[in-house]
């Protein structure tokens, strides 16, 4: 059951990001604003896509949500837990998958799933059952006793997805999950994300691949230079720009943002409460 705007009945979103900021100091560039006032929400049963070029701030945003990085401003809540105030609760509420989150090579598949279920607080008495169900679901059984370092990339991918959801978190973050995968594995990944969405998970998905975002995301946020340029469903974005393809929509927003240096592009109230879908330039 995919989430839609009309069905957004959940009183509290699974992920609630408000005016989130992250700056860091770089010897060469001085203060860099990697994320500059992002606001969005993600509800259970929804795939929210963050679309942006490399360096747009997608990964930094998702790392702040997973508490790997500390925000320098704004707030972010996952299942009601503020990322700075209750980082452990936040991490237990989500599963984080990215190309930079590898598996322990010297553990086997079953040990990997048991470890991640336990350390993320899954009830001890249900760990074995949960792990077995994941092994069955992803067809890991044939190689569950083999060390991860011996597995093919496709097998590793399955174990990796299974470990992300080992503790059955309500929120899942997939940061460029198809990077480095072949076509078939990428399609499988997209299919798994759809299934998880249908199970009611709130999913944050980041990518710079337009076709994936088009196919998968219920709502899309276009990010550029750490700022949210537009936010809405694909239809809403098409309507607002008069363009059909997401690639064209993305380019038009980025071009506008680059051309209007010093100006601000907002989507409805993208800088604060989210809601509207229109895209407009503001002074």
């Amino acid at each position: 059951m995919a989430w839609s705007k009309g069905e957004g009945m959940t009183p509290r979103p699974a992920v609630d990001v408000r005016d989130l900021r992250k700056s860091f100091w770089d010897e060469g560039r001085g203060e860099v604003r990697a994320v500059d006032g992002l606001s969005f929400t993600c509800h259970p049963g929804e795939v929210f896509g963050l679309l942006g070029a490399n360096g747009a701030g997608k990964t930094t945003t998702l790392r702040m949500l997973s508490t790997v990085l500390r925000p320098t401003g704004g707030s972010a809540r996952v299942m009601g837990h503020e990322v700075q105030e209750a980082p452990e609760r936040v991490r237990r509420s989500l599963g984080f998958y990215s190309a930079s989150t590898a598996l322990y090579p010297r553990l086997n598949g079953r040990e990997t799933l048991e470890f991640f279920a336990r350390i993320n607080g899954y009830p001890e008495e249900r760990v074995r059952g949960r792990v077995q169900s994941l092994i069955d679901r992803f067809g890991i059984g044939e190689y569950e006793k083999a060390r991860v370092e011996k597995l093919s990339s496709g097998m590793k991918q399955k174990v990796s997805i299974a470990r992300t959801i080992a503790h059955d978190p309500p929120v899942l973050i997939f940061d460029e999950p198809t990077v480095g995968l072949d076509v078939l594995n990428a399609l499988e990944m997209v299919q798994v994300i759809r299934e998880l969405r249908d199970e009611g998970k709130a999913i944050l998905f980041s990518s710079h691949i337009m076709s994936e975002v088009e196919k998968l995301c219920d709502r899309i946020g276009i990010v550029h230079r750490g700022r949210l340029l537009a936010l809405g469903t694909l239809d809403e974005l098409r309507e607002a720009t008069g363009l059909h393809y997401l690639e064209d929509i993305f380019v038009s927003h980025v071009t506008a943002a680059e051309g209007l240096a010093g100006s601000e592009l907002v989507e409805g109230d993208a800088g604060g409460e989210e809601g509207g879908t229109g895209v407009e330039a503001a002074d």
Partner: peptide, 14 residues
Amino acid sequence: ERSTWETLMTVGAA
């Protein structure tokens, strides 16, 4: 080096 550091940083332990 094995890229498991970030995996560990996202687990639900303090």
